[in-house]
Nucleic acid binder design. Structure first.
Lengths: 325, 325
DNA sequence: TTGTATGCGTTATCAT
DNA sequence: ATGATAACGCATACAA
């Protein structure tokens, strides 16, 4: 690989001049500029990221750490992140935690060892001990989707609390009175928010809650739970897309009569949901926007500006199979 | 940020010793080792990735470049990549091309400017000019999903050609004679493979082909095309997951009688497909394995070993809504 | 308008 | 068993 010195020698100038040609950091005579560019071209010169990184102490790289990119929610958020990053000339290192706090720790260490300028995190940690751990991270940190208690990091979430309440009001105004909730993994702020929105809108004697773990299997189990329930709620809210898939799939296969009898409302809107029959309702989170904003906040942090601690984005209510577009 | 020199000073040793403690590259007396470790701890010392990168000319980072991570196919491949990378202590920078050759070029340049050790690519380029372009990439390159003509880079694909033929044989043995194909974007090797598998198995007078573009909209258009077709094929093969979603969704909404009358076979197996009614058949590509193997080949290349030019993985045939698990 | 020379933090060579 | 020091490739302060 050619270095800046090779280019300088070939063009008959100093390395400083070459550097300034590359970065446009000081005026260079057009004639010498041409010479330098030509030398760069014939040598196929590419500036070393490491030399530059060492000197400027950044590679314009950030870390994106989520449970699992095969979860469409996270890959949708990533889309926004990637776009914002590209616009700002950053690139993104992606890591998986698999919802495992220990693997999250390792991944964070790995990201830091690559010299990332900042980190975007949907925290998998649930315990309070995480606070201390995250505090040790020596670069800016922005959280999304989930906030952690007493966290003093900027955080971008969707207002699913209000969205759940709104969905319930919708069905109450149509005469429904009995509601069920399939809640997610305990300890996650998303789970708490949705539970609060639910408890807030439905009187105690008219509600029933299934405590799941945010995974597909929980949806399956919830279907059985529903089937054995003395009297079905007429509206069931599902805490996320994976549980919704487990629930719908199981109802369709094993309990089609239930599927036909109840209204289903699910958090997250995905294409497949629009062709469940009978139609189900969706609460669409602004995933792409969440990623974009989180990335923008992170860039602010990196630049030393400060940014709002909590950004809460509105969800969209899509009753009865209405398409997200 | 503390440097190796700060640690050396505090421990009263040379930087060389500290380095050797860190890397275990030569014996260090247990007593001095303890001193060094302690100093590292109290200073919260983290080795600089850039210093190390400059010296060793690697950051153990690779680039992963696909059209779009929200396509479940690519995010599934990524899962295998990420796992293999993590096991080998590599991290992965993810970029989007959006199927746009120009953006692919930019993304490649950006990856290279970050000093990646190698690149995993599902090429968006279709023209022959791409050959020269890819040849200029100064680090090992492994392709997956799509191969390009005359490409001399290792490539990992699935044997969808055989899989399509096999699917057709399955239905032929059950008395079906008329077959349709919704083909993907022209120029992609995946499209060609599937087309070949189709043409190979169905006599000319018994087949009909819709030429799509691999996107959701193509599936929608294909549904209209089917509806206007003088006589429907009794089996329709769909070239990928996005077109399948467009097709099924549109048939269900606008042409339920067609959906009930024909057999649908789709490439890619995704959860939502298992609850289409009536059940459709799937050709499952080994996505996770594809990613894992591609990453392993890339590591081989980086280490200067050579690897097979073409790795073709078998698909799985899942007739009639059979679950992928 | 251009050049010289230094230092970023590490690792590795050569001494001791 | 340990230390001194020279690279690695670049950007930049200072000189000319």
């Amino acid at each position: 690989m050619a270095t800046i010195r090779d280019v300088a020698r070939m063009a008959g100038v100093s390395t400083a001049t070459v550097s300034h040609v590359i970065n446009g950091t000081r005026p260079v005579a057009e004639s010498t500029r041409k010479l330098v560019l030509q030398a760069m071209d014939t040598l196929h010169y590419v500036p070393s990221a490491f030399g530059r990184g060492l000197r400027k102490n950044t590679l314009r790289t950030i870390g994106f750490l989520v449970a699992d990119m095969t979860n469409p929610f996270f890959s949708a958020v990533f889309q926004g992140v990637e776009r914002a990053a590209r616009n700002a000339h950053y690139t993104v290192i992606v890591s998986h935690s698999g919802e495992d706090p220990e693997r999250e720790d390792e991944a964070l260490a790995s990201l830091l060892s690559k010299g990332v300028d900042g980190i975007l995190l949907a925290p998998a940690h649930v315990a309070d001990t995480a606070l201390e751990l995250y505090s040790r991270i020596p670069v800016p940190l922005v959280m999304f989707d989930r906030r952690i208690p007493q966290g003093h990091w900027p955080c971008v979430i969707s207002d699913s609390r209000s969205a759940v309440t709104e969905a319930i009001r919708f069905f109450q105004s149509r005469g429904h009175t009995e509601f069920g909730l399939i809640a997610g993994r305990s300890g996650l702020s998303t789970t708490t928010d949705r539970l609060e929105g639910f408890l807030n809108a439905v009187p105690a004697s008219h509600r029933t809650v299934f405590y799941g773990n945010s995974r597909y299997e929980s949806g399956v189990t919830a279907a059985d739970w529903l089937a054995e329930h003395p009297h079905w709620p007429s509206v069931v809210i599902v805490g996320n897309n994976l549980m919704a898939m487990g629930l719908v799939s199981t109802l369709q296969t094993r309990y089609p009569h239930i599927l036909n009898a109840i209204e289903i409302v699910t958090l997250d809107a995905e294409p497949w949901m629009t062709f469940v029959r009978p139609p189900i309702s969706m609460i669409a989170q602004p995933t792409d926007q969440m990623g974009e904003i989180a990335m923008q906040l992170l860039i602010q942090q990196i630049q030393g500006e400060d940014s709002p601690l909590l950004t809460s984005l509105p969800c969209r209510w899509l009753p009865h199979g209405q398409s997200p577009r």
